[in-house]
Write a protein that binds this DNA or RNA. Structure first.
Length: 821
RNA sequence: GCCGAGGUGGCGGAAUCGGCAGACGCGAGGGACUUAAAAUCCCUUCCCCGAAGCGGGGGUGCGGGUUCGAGCCCCGCCCUCGGCACCA
């Protein structure tokens, strides 16, 4: 090709240049008055840990590419960025290094913002949101007050998860694996504490409705399982006197098989029902159970434990007296904290009965059962026996029949139970939004009036390694006056879970500087809800669930008018190193910076998308990035050469190898492929298609002849298709080839159906399912023609001579298969 | 234990309305250019047989099955990853 080209592709030079130019021209500022439909594409904002690693870019680059694609498709795209800036690591840094959490956090943000800018995304930085600034957390507190007014925030004493290392409580959702702290993996212990909760359980049923959102099945299933709905019956068992024990069961059909009752050790009736001679043993057991660590308690291999408390309950259906036990396999926090034990038909009850030699009464006969003892609980359906008037019924029918009977007799009623617990939002830490409440000796619990918000974090708090909340000992903070009576009062010293901050940040982006309210209602109406959300699946039962609850609560208060925050969700996979997650503490972190400095952001962006399907994640192996760099260099040379006068003269010369028609076909086929892949987030095959296109154009450029307009269409198309992925390179080449700035304001190419359509295909000829020949044929070939052609081929004939043709299978546009016997 | 996703060359991965397995890229081998190296370009690269072929055979975790035809569907296993885990 041309000898004249001297300019080399130099991303180090062109990337900063265009980033500055775009910023200067406010290319990516978005406004509500644009004449296009809006598109809100959001990626989960990063926690301000210090450095962005390649995993962050893996989340952000493809999301930016898709947002840019939508922008070129004509949408008014909001694709903002901000920082999740409250949280424990800032405080730990303060303790260990004497830096104030604010200083630490803002320093990190500074560094991360720089890294993010080098990515070359279309973030409108005027809309940046930082959750730790008073302008923001003022509204976090405001939302708390709204939830409080609505009766959705309450304070209660409860056994809660306590992380001894973080010195704070954790929400259920933040306890992972075998009872470990989500952040530091320390085993969690139980503590009885007064804490603030949000009543997410009120929305359990609605949270199970995913009909208005397009989310991955996997995430919906995780939320479903987390909410854990089960339908059953709550049934009263009689006690001496007026009292009753209520149990929850999903198997009312087994009620004739109840041989004992088990209460959770913390059950309120235990105290009253324990008889004098069992008191000591019961107390000992409760104490023992309380001391069990979460890990011990959760172990399924552990032998059942429990004690008899001396009292009996009456099965109202049979009139039988059954003993009442306590055991820690029954949880106070689920159902009623009491179960009717049916050892014959529940494995846990079975093990318990075996261990303590309690009767096992079969009421659902297994198939072919003739009265012998069971080796394990029979939990499947069967025929009802030993069940009075219900004998002989299939147990599935018995379920309803018995429930109807129980309801008719007033012994109990149908009930739904959920595994989901209320969201524990108190944290005994400094670096979070203070809960805006005051304790007054005279007035009790008093919310801080809206006009007094924000309740500011004191700057003079001391960070000591004792582990206790610095706020607790900060007098300037704790001492307050009661908003109601002006008397001396104490401020609440708990701060809010940071998931509270992230439950509304996506709404703040709509009007980030707004002073009168958390958002400007008109702008919110324009932008929300988020059309496309992307982020990690690890938030399935945390951020993603909390936020759905939050929006539903706000909707019911009339603050927002939509039901779901995020219409479409896509979860990218995890980038790993040596099959393990990146982790700062283990020194397994790759930052993008060195790669950006060496190969350019465009190459890193493209490589991250090329590794594999976005939702599958993958191994970071920097050897592969070379292939991308080579490709971008080839694009550079190809495009610049293409606009060289001599080159144009050369391709315009007629030759035997004229390819204009094929070139246009391939150009339009590529547009189709790239567009469809982009829409489906299949970035790896999109890049492969662009590479193939580049390779093809390179071949055409070597001595073949083509009409210049077709050639320029192809080259321009390549640049436009590449623009979302490699925005700097595309812009540079677009400008250098004399096109008007900016390529990012151009429309994404549209394919011509006729040109993209195939005219021929490779007909595969098989004999007995084995490939024997292939031949290019026109798409219009008929079945008869194809069969005839197949039979006539030299290569097939050899395989036909020894047998008789039994049938011929023809698959249009694919193959002919000759079956020979 | 239960639920979900997955297992394809030396590596990352393509191909799923059941129809050419291995696109694209990395790595490797060979060649061109160069005093040399880097860069770049060209060729080869699933395995076995064959001097070679646009020749034969085998091949998508394992074992069976359905089908003219199976990476894809069915049955039974094994392994990896993620989630849940005494939830009555």
């Amino acid at each position: 090709m041309s000898e004249k080209r001297v300019v080399k592709y130099n991303p180090q030079e062109i990337e900063p240049k265009w980033q500055e130019r775009w910023a200067q021209d406010r290319l990516y500022e978005v406004h509500e008055d644009a004449p296009h439909p809006k598109w809100y594409e959001l990626t989960m904002f990063p926690y301000t840990s210090g450095d962005l690693h390649i995993g962050h870019w893996y989340a952000m680059a493809p999301s930016d590419v898709h947002a840019r694609f939508m922008r070129m498709k004509g949408y008014n795209v909001l694709h903002p960025m901000g920082f999740d800036a409250f949280g424990l690591p800032a405080e730990n840094a303060a303790i260990s290094r004497g830096i104030h959490p604010f200083t630490w956090t803002m320093g990190n943000i500074e560094r991360m913002r720089g890294q993010l800018k080098s990515l070359g995304a279309i973030y409108d930085w005027n809309r940046e949101v930082e959750t730790c600034l008073p302008d923001y957390y003022k509204w976090t507190q405001w939302f708390f007050l709204k939830l409080y007014e609505a009766g959705l925030a309450y304070r209660a004493k409860a056994p809660v998860n306590w992380c001894p290392k973080c010195q704070t409580v954790l929400a259920n959702e933040q306890v992972v694996g075998e009872g470990l702290c989500e952040r530091c993996e320390t085993p969690v212990t139980r503590k009885d504490l007064e804490q603030w909760f949000f009543r997410i359980t009120k929305y359990a049923e609605e949270l199970l409705d995913f009909s208005h959102i397009e989310w991955p099945e996997r995430i919906k299933t995780m939320q479903k399982n987390w909410i854990g709905k089960s339908e059953g019956v709550e049934i009263a068992f009689g006690l001496e006197g007026e009292e009753e024990i209520r149990v929850f069961t999903t198997r009312p059909d087994t009620i004739y098989g109840v041989t004992f009752i088990v209460l959770a050790p913390e059950h309120p009736l235990v105290e009253r029902l324990t008889t004098a001679e069992h008191r000591e043993e019961v107390a000992r057991y409760i104490e023992w159970a309380r001391r069990q660590s979460e890990i011990e308690r959760l172990s399924t291999e552990r032998e059942k434990s429990g004690v008899f408390i001396g009292s009996y309950a009456i099965n109202k259906l049979t009139g039988e007296r059954v003993p009442i036990w306590i055991a820690d396999y029954v949880l106070m926090s689920y159902g009623t904290g009491a179960v009717m034990a049916v050892p014959a038909h529940d494995q846990r009850d079975f093990e318990f009965a075996k261990r303590f030699v309690l009767p096992i009464k079969v009421v659902i006969a297994p198939p072919d059962w003739s009265g012998e003892d069971l080796a394990e609980a029979y939990i499947k359906p069967g025929t009802m026996v030993n069940s009075a008037q219900f004998d002989g019924l299939p147990s599935e029918q018995g379920m309803d029949a018995i429930t109807d009977f129980i309801e008719a007799m007033g012994y109990g009623e149908r009930k739904k139970t959920y595994r989901l617990r209320d969201w524990l939002i108190s944290r005994q830490r400094y670096w979070g939004a203070p809960i805006p409440m005051v304790y007054c000796d005279r007035c009790g619990l008093v919310p801080v009036p809206e006009k007094d918000l924000p309740v500011l974090l004191p700057e003079d708090a001391e960070f000591r390694p004792t582990g206790e909340s610095p706020l607790k000992y900060c007098e300037s903070f704790v001492n307050a006056t009661c908003p109601k009576c002006d008397a001396m009062a104490r401020r609440e010293t708990d701060t809010m879970d940071t998931f509270m901050c992230s439950s509304w940040y996506f709404m703040r982006y709509a009007s980030p500087g707004y002073k009168e309210a958390p958002f400007d209602v008109e702008k919110l109406k324009y932008w929300l809800p988020v059309d496309q959300y992307t982020g990690g699946a690890e938030h399935a039962t945390m951020h993603l669930l909390y936020t759905r609850f939050f929006i539903k609560a706000l909707r019911d208060m009339g603050i927002v008018d939509f039901d779901e925050p995020f219409i479409r969700l896509f979860n990218q996979g995890v980038i790993v190193i040596e099959r393990q997650k990146m982790s700062k503490s283990r020194g397994r972190v790759i930052t993008p910076d060195a790669y950006v400095a060496e190969m350019g952001a465009d190459a890193v962006r493209a490589y991250l998308m090329f590794i594999g399907p976005w939702d599958q994640g993958g191994e970071w192996d920097d050897r592969g990035i070379k292939g991308i760099a080579r490709w971008l260099n080839r694009v550079w040379s190809l495009v610049l050469d293409s606009y060289d006068a001599e080159f144009l003269k050369a391709i315009a010369k007629p030759s035997k190898e004229a390819v204009t028609k094929t070139l246009r076909h391939i150009t339009h086929r590529t547009i189709k492929k790239v567009t469809e892949d982009m829409e489906r987030f299949r970035f790896n095959t999109m890049i492969a298609a662009l590479m193939e296109f580049t390779n093809y154009l390179g071949k055409v450029g070597e001595g073949k002849s083509v009409e210049p307009p077709a050639w320029q269409e192809a080259i321009d198309t390549l640049l436009l298709l590449l623009a979302p992925t490699a925005p700097h390179l595309a812009e540079e080449l677009w400008t250098r080839t004399g096109h008007p700035y900016s390529i990012h304001n151009q429309a994404f190419p549209k394919w011509d159906k006729g040109l993209a359509a195939e005219e021929e295909f490779t007909l595969v000829i098989q004999v007995n399912g084995r490939l024997r020949d292939r031949v290019r044929v026109p798409i219009s070939i008929t079945e008869e023609e194809a069969k005839e052609l197949a039979l006539g081929r030299e290569r097939t004939k050899a395989y036909l001579k020894d047998g008789e043709i039994a049938r011929i299978i023809y698959v249009p546009r694919r193959l002919v298969n000759i079956v020979v016997k």
